[in-house]
Amino acid sequence: MSGSNELSRRDFIKVTTGIVGGLIGVAIGLPTISYLIDPALQEGGKDVWVSIGKFEDMQVGIPYPFSFTRVQVNGWERTSNSFGGYALRKSDDPKDLLILNSRCTHLACTVNWSEEAQGYLCPCHDAKFSIEGEVLDGPPPRPLDVYTDFRLTEDGLIEIFSKAG
């Protein structure tokens, strides 16, 4: 019926089915992989500059408390995360600021400035940090985190760079 070089009707159908099936598989399979791993490829929130207060309101040598919230979107859910800290102005130079994150480096409780103790006290495990954020007492493994990226705007506001997450 057919020579050795000719494709039989049967084989033609087999090959065609294979090719068409393969094409459908690829056309749907690749998007599906993308669909499944999509959340892993999404970037979190955006990194933004957050205003923490007016430079002129900060008094030299007295920690200035601030707080802000960032909204994190996970899928169809929005989660608010609160952040806070203290800005310590050291001189008239707006670059001469030490901005500490009030998240305790031990187990992430929020530390508070205490005028009497002249230090940041953590309510959870009695940790104590100096005005510069160094560990004076208690279990924290390292000093308080520092916001190193900050700037003074034209309106006299101090802004810090808040990374997502």
Partner: peptide, 17 residues
Amino acid sequence: YDSVQYIMEGVAFGWLI
């Protein structure tokens, strides 16, 4: 409802699936 909207608009190729 929100999760279906998310599939349609938030996820890559969610509309296709």
